[in-house]
Design a protein around this nucleic acid. Structure first.
Length: 191
DNA sequence: CATATGATGGACT
DNA sequence: GTCCATCATATGG
């Protein structure tokens, strides 16, 4: 069962935090790629200097204004980064999926990544998309209703005490608030 | 373990 | 040409 629209159409930081522990699934032909989300970042609107929604709409960033659950995929330094829009229409926001613990399709992920160690498969926003086969083709999908890309409830909820926070990584100008969320004791978090 | 550095490709001006 | 919400190496401790 995919998470519904109501889950995504809330405060972006809340959605980012609540996505921890959920499973993301990419069904590609007969292959299934599944993993547990262990690290996310929240991006807001014009008031956020690190957000792509701080400027005018473009073909890429316009999906941040779309309904919660719409995907946003773009390239940075030759890697695709995968985001899910939050809030409703006309309120921009998105959550970047930064790291995932692989659960299914691991052998094929190893081939795509040309790596053997599981912690090197999806422990970063660019390596995650590479392992899962996510590209620009997955821009603009609605994860609440898509057959190929969905986010579902995990094995168990993540306890608040397990969640850690930090400033966002790699941004040129960050907000005061800590908007990176990750599961503290999980070995698949990025460095 | 840690930190430093060069390569990368697409969107945009 | 410039700007990146990155990554894989290399080197030192």
């Amino acid at each position: 069962m995919s998470l519904n629209r109501k889950f995504y159409e809330r405060d972006t930081a809340e959605v980012a935090k609540d996505l921890l522990g959920k499973n993301i699934i990419h069904r590609e032909d007969s292959q299934v790629f599944k993993g547990k989300i262990v690290e996310t970042e929240a991006y807001f609107g014009p008031e956020d200097p690190a957000s792509r929604a701080k400027d005018e709409k473009t073909k890429i960033n316009e999906n941040m204004w779309k309904k919660g659950g719409t995907t946003l995929v773009y390239m940075v330094h030759s890697y695709w980064l995968f985001n899910i829009a939050t809030e409703g229409n006309d309120i921009p926001g998105a959550v970047l999926i930064r790291a995932v613990e692989p659960l299914e399709g691991i052998e094929f992920m190893k081939l795509r990544r040309e790596r053997e160690r599981e912690k090197e498969l999806a422990s970063g926003p660019g390596t995650f998309t590479q392992a899962f086969g996510i590209t620009k083709d997955h821009h603009g999908i609605d994860v609440t209703s898509s057959d190929t890309l969905s986010v579902e409830q995990g094995e168990r909820d993540v306890e608040p005490s397990e969640i850690k926070y930090s400033h966002r990584i790699g941004v040129t100008e960050d907000l005061e608030r800590e908007l990176r969320f990750f599961i503290g004791d999980n070995g698949h978090v990025s460095r």
